[in-house]
Design a protein around this nucleic acid. Sequence first.
DNA 1: TCGTTTTCTTGAACGAGTCAAGAATATCGG
DNA 2: CCGATATTCTTGACTCGTTCAAGAAAACGA
Lengths: 140, 140
Amino acid sequence: MPVPTDPAAVLRTAGLRVTRPRLAVLEAVHARPHVDTDAVIEAVRADIGVVSHQAVYDVLRALTDAGLLRRIQPTGSVARYEARVGDNHHHVVCRSCGAVADVDCAVGEAPCLTASDDSGFVIDEAEVTYWGSCPACTSR
Amino acid sequence: MPVPTDPAAVLRTAGLRVTRPRLAVLEAVHARPHVDTDAVIEAVRADIGVVSHQAVYDVLRALTDAGLLRRIQPTGSVARYEARVGDNHHHVVCRSCGAVADVDCAVGEAPCLTASDDSGFVIDEAEVTYWGSCPACTSR
DNA sequence: TCGTTTTCTTGAACGAGTCAAGAATATCGG
DNA sequence: CCGATATTCTTGACTCGTTCAAGAAAACGA
């Protein structure tokens, strides 16, 4: 019997059909935190051969909609994906090289922040992006 | 003598040349919080006539670099600009219509949040985006 | 295995933003 | 006030990430 984290089982549990592109995308993102779409396409092709870029875009959307992946897109960056979902963590982004790292939620559960004046909006999530310089860029 | 907030004086003080497009862009953004580039172009053309879109892009960048404007770009939205600068306030964005509203900093001064584990990054800003539903969309 | 539905392939298209070269204009020294 | 010089604006092409559309292929329940 398959382990609970078997990719195919994960897809089926989410109500998605199991296809080679989907398995490959899922594994590629699991293996590489904060990958951009291009890198996913490369990884998937290295894994299973010819795949259209459109298929990868479709799969990324399907997996994101199903809650298996999370899409992030810091200002000035292309879309990136990560497999760490459901824990409301945040990100630090390097201003010079664009590197991204995870940052645990600073204050409690999601939404981990409460707006002081919400202008009547019903808020369901607080997304925090920290900006700065990564270790490599800082030491240069 | 001009009042302290005279647009031309503001530009000069920032070390920028005073041109009609710059004055028009500055006023357009002051009058409309969270405008996107297209709306700025429209407003500027309504104000001073023919202006190339490139000029507006250039001006927006120059004013942003000079700290006279702030650029924000919630995921899934085009670039938006606001004249409220230097107070580290944040934004609420409506998931369905994209409306943006200001939110005062929830905790102290900028950076108003401290990452629990910064992965060695030197952090200089914490940007918070609240996601939810605006009053209009909520009541529908 | 068949039929239905979903997914993938192919190839074109889109839109926000950028690049580049030359014309126009702001500012400053005289 | 005027010319010199650096900056800014115009024009028009172009890039890049992403999406659209139509048909071929594949997954999966019966």
